[in-house]
Amino acid sequence: MPLIIKDEYPEKLFREDGKRLDGRELNELRPIKMEVGVIKSADGSAYLEWGNNKVFAAVYGPREVHPHHLAKPDRGILRVFYRMATYSVFDRKRPAPGRREKEISMIVSDCLEPILFLELYPGTSFEIFIEVVDADGGTRCASTTVAALALADAGIPMKSLVSAIAVGKIDGKQVVDLSGIEDKAGDADLPIAITWYNEEISLLQFDGEMDLDEMTKFLDIAKDALSKIHQMQLVSLKSKYITLKEGEGEKKR
């Protein structure tokens, strides 16, 4: 007889001192750690820890398209495979890709396509494999962020990086970076991705209730958070080379 645990959410999503359940302020991000070049056999790879989320991304390409009928004669294609490990969530996740995985693969792909020069590589494909080994809310945003890092690490020409974050409303207050419990029990949820090339919104999904004024406020607070994440992306990409450079300098002296 399997153990059945019902989903029970707390009545209040704020503590008595006004902070969130995990002790964050309203517009505070969860701790983020990024690393580039973690998978040796891939052309480019990245690893991201975003709160309790742990995501790997690997990039291969340009290479031949399999199955071959997907190839386009005038441009390359970008394929994204988002998968969750069976142990990444509380109940066992069935390993077969379901509706949710296909959706997230599609939105990550659509979100990254505008920054690549796919027309330069006709008949080929770039493939991004995203593996979520631990999930706690906001994996689609984490996946987009880490996929952009892996593409840059692979040396594929791209106009800019892409960053993503979820903002939302819990207990009537606007907060940044929803965790898993806030996502499920909150009032509204709004994942946003931005391409820094021309600062255009590349992904905007919405679930819940809010009015138009709130929406514009959300976009403003999201942009502040996104620029923080962008800075972290830049630092993690450069640190791969700069740490080595400084280390060598010391040796030389």
């Binding site: 840059a152 020409p157 791209m158 106009k159 800019s160 990086l161 820094w196 450069k238 080379y241 450079k245």
Partner: peptide, 9 residues
């Protein structure tokens, strides 16, 4: 001129 730059910079 040995600055490391990244895409979009």
């Amino acid at each position: 001129s040995r600055d490391v730059v990244v895409p979009g910079e």
